[in-house]
């Protein structure tokens, strides 16, 4: 549980302390890549909770989505169409859907645990 959080903090710390910067024109690509990465991450968590998690799907999805999003934005810039909006929309919608599913699963689990605790308590009393 703590390991992923540590990873995030380590990444943030490394990025902030090294003071890395990218040219402003590539800012759009990076923001879309972050969105894609977040989407994949939440998808992975959901899959784990639904017990359909697959390593290959997760890792390939992560890189593929990030590259596809950046590529779409790149293409959009060159075609003069704001294609990155499509990526933002798609990822945004999926992000919320994933979060909703995760929330429901967690709520169901919480309720189940409560029920189990109640029944065990009842058994003890009997």
């Amino acid at each position: 549980m703590w390991l992923p959080l540590l990873g995030l903090l380590l990444g943030l710390g490394l990025g902030l302390l090294s003071d890395m910067q990218i040219p402003v024109i590539y800012q759009n690509y990076l923001s879309i890549a972050v969105l894609a990465a977040l989407d994949t991450l939440l998808g992975g968590i959901r899959a784990q909770l639904q017990e359909v998690y697959d390593d290959k799907v997760f890792v390939s999805g992560f890189f593929f989505n990030v590259l596809l999003a950046a590529g779409l934005a790149f293409l959009g810039v060159h075609l003069g169409v704001d294609l990155y909006l499509a990526a933002i929309f798609a990822f945004g919608v999926r992000l919320f859907q994933n979060i909703a599913v995760i929330r429901r699963i967690l709520l169901v689990r919480y309720d189940e645990r409560k029920k189990v605790r109640k029944t065990t308590n009842n058994h003890k009393i009997i």
């Binding site: 992923p4 990873g7 990444g11 990465a37």
Partner: peptide
């Protein structure tokens, strides 16, 4: 929790952290 799953999530979060920090640096210092 599966260790391989946890490691993968950690690595992905690490990458996301770096990307966010770089984005933050870029946005903060135009």
């Amino acid at each position: 929790m599966n260790t391989s799953y946890s490691m993968r999530i950690t690595i992905v979060l690490f990458i996301i952290g770096i990307m966010m920090a770089v984005l933050y640096n870029t946005v903060q210092q135009p």
